[in-house]
């Protein structure tokens, strides 16, 4: 009995009251003898009710359905439940349909293609994540450098204002006097790029060029050495044992260079970190142009 094929169309006709008395009896006898058959009959009944609720039954079947199903409270209750279920599945399953629409074509791929697709997706996700992290880190670093640059510019302007104030407060009889010190502040990152060259103007009376280099947090050395060369590579000056000192929220190395050794030219200042008993480590190279007037 169990191996017999189940004719579901026959079950639909049974449920719609379209079988003869003998056929009906055969369906019922088998349903009570075969658990699988009974299960299928119940499933067909549920599908028929769902089709009715969704308006998917042809007119003739619909009429037969109403004749058979709207008579008992038990069946009316099943129909009302099916209506509720239909509403709930429609509203709850909505978000999944978009995903399913995307995933359905993938499901039809063969396993090798699926594996390749999954691998590709994983690489894209990993690459995308790395780019996002890297981008965020870069943005944060640029913002920090920008803030430092603004800070230094403000300091430089303040110094110039102070200088101007001193010049104004000097007695008129003394005449205009040129400052003996010219300052230049070199920042990490920006000044280290040869494409951007800072300008140091040395007026006729200037005797000393004061150069200040902003250090980065990673430049943790007890002492530094500065090698000053022209852009053509001619060594000008070496300043050793430069000790970093704290300014604001960072550290700087500063040095005074006699104006007499500088000419109107472009220079490269190499800064090296000196550890205890270690070779000098390159910290960075800074570029500036001297303009003598």
């Amino acid at each position: 009995m169990r191996t017999e094929r189940i004719d579901e169309l026959l079950l639909v006709r049974y449920l719609l009251g379209r079988l003869t008395e003998e056929e009906q009896a055969r369906v019922e006898d088998r349903a009570f003898a075969d658990r699988d058959y009974l299960g299928t009959l119940n499933a067909v009944e549920a599908d028929l009710i769902d089709a009715y609720v969704r308006g998917e039954l042809p007119q003739a079947d619909r009429r037969a359905f109403e004749w058979q199903f709207l008579t008992s409270p038990q069946r009316r209750s099943k129909i009302e439940f099916a209506q509720a279920l239909s509403r709930v599945t429609a509203e709850v399953a909505k978000p999944a349909t978009t995903w399913r629409a995307l995933l359905d074509p993938i499901r039809s791929w063969n396993p090798a293609l699926r594996f390749a697709g999954a691998l590709g997706a994983a690489i894209c996700v990993a690459g995308g994540s790395w780019l996002v992290v890297e981008n965020a880190s870069m943005r944060s670093r640029v913002s920090m450098l920008e803030a430092q640059r603004r800070d230094l510019e403000m300091r430089s302007q303040r110094l110039q204002r102070d200088l101007a104030a001193q010049v104004q407060s000097r007695p008129a009889s003394e005449g205009p006097r040129t400052p003996i010190v010219a300052s230049l502040v070199l920042m990490p990152g920006l000044s280290r790029a040869p494409s951007r060259t800072e300008q140091l103007v040395l007026d006729r009376g200037v005797q000393v060029a004061h150069i200040e280099i902003q250090l980065e947090p990673r430049d943790e050395y007890p002492r530094f050495r500065a090698d000053l060369r022209t852009r053509s590579g001619k060594e000008v000056l070496v300043l050793g044992a430069l000790v970093p000192h704290r300014t604001g929220d960072g550290y700087t190395v500063s040095m005074d260079i006699p104006a007499s050794v500088l000419a109107t030219e472009e220079y490269e200042l190499g800064l090296k970190g000196l550890g205890d008993g270690q070779d000098a480590q390159d910290v960075g190279y800074y570029y500036f142009r001297v303009q003598k007037r």
């Binding site: 209506q83 509720a84 599945t89 999944a96 349909t97």
Partner: peptide, 29 residues
Amino acid sequence: PEGRLECLRRCLGQLSPETRNLILHYYHG
């Protein structure tokens, strides 16, 4: 109908996520 719907939602909420997913997707569409 609204009461029945509310009851059905409550009963769905008592199912395990796997079973709830099964019934909602099986009868959807």
